[in-house]
Design a protein around this nucleic acid. Structure first.
Lengths: 164, 164
DNA sequence: TATTGTTATACTCTATAACTATA
DNA sequence: TATAGTTATAGAGTATAACAATA
């Protein structure tokens, strides 16, 4: 009986993905930290931007965060002056979350930081190769049934769930 | 002054990387869990395989784990019968970590699980495209100065450092 | 009776410091 | 005095359960 050789991790797609994913998440954290923003906070602002006026429960569902944890998250964003809570007149249990002008500005700044990060990751690639790798990753993501644009790591807050 | 449009996250290389990376790490965790193995445990076994007989300190350095945390990790692997501690005769402070036959077997099984995971991620890709995306990701990883084959998420144990 | 937001509690994981035995 | 391994403590982050207000 022949032994199978140990896998070379640098040739493994899944290993490369989790390696680079962890690096990318860490860089993202570092890049938006100077703005006073956390990845989860950006997730909320980004979600409120694309779908304005959600309830906390809707935000929690969209981002895969538990509504209990959403409370403190909104507290922090509200304290920073980036979002506001307003009672829904038609359902007085719920708050509608809206973005302030300052919230819009910090969101835009974070967006530019992401663009810079993309540039950083693709700096050794030709334009063609950079487009190519994005297209291939999108195919993998689609197949994996990921909601495009929603970060799954958000679900565990800070964790990436898997490296434990 | 014109406003820059909000970034489309599904077109962002860094966003796709952290998304798929989190998914890959989670899948890896799930796939080796039935073997009784954690990602960090696999990291140790894998490292001992490629560089036999390291001290706990050397293992900690190689994997980016603090030596304090390495103690419990080795405890668990030793209790499972996968590694053994042996005093280094030339430095009686240090333990040399060796792999048992059972440790070799579970390592090989985990290796096959990784191969299956690679297959899972690339199942919608042609052979050419699968090779292409691996090559492009390797280029990115090389540029980012990642040690090939070492998982950075290991450093924070379970976390991916960045999604917080 | 179910749901939204909230708070309190327990649990997990990590970081820091201190201890021992060797060098 | 420094280093390898170990242990204990505290901290951050998360999950679970329970509560008040409203539906």
């Amino acid at each position: 009986m022949k032994e199978s050789p140990p896998p070379v991790h640098s040739d493994s797609l899944s290993f490369l993905l989790s390696q680079l994913g962890a690096l990318s998440a860490a860089r993202f954290h570092d890049v938006i930290a100077p703005l006073g923003l956390t990845p989860r906070g950006y997730g909320v602002l980004s979600q409120v931007t694309s779908d304005p006026g959600p309830t906390q429960q809707q935000l929690a569902d969209a981002l895969g965060i538990h509504r209990n944890n959403m409370v403190g998250l909104i507290d922090a964003l509200e304290a920073a002056g980036w979002v506001e809570r307003r009672r829904d007149p038609s359902d007085r249990r719920a708050f509608r979350i809206s973005r302030t002008p300052e919230g819009a500005e910090v969101t835009a700044r974070a967006g530019r930081a992401i663009a810079a990060l993309d540039e950083e990751f693709s700096r050794t690639l030709s334009t063609t190769d950079a487009e190519r790798v994005v297209r291939l990753l999108q195919r993998i993501a689609d197949d994996a049934d990921l909601n495009r644009g929603v970060h799954p790591a958000m679900a565990q807050g800070h964790r990436a769930e898997g490296a434990r």
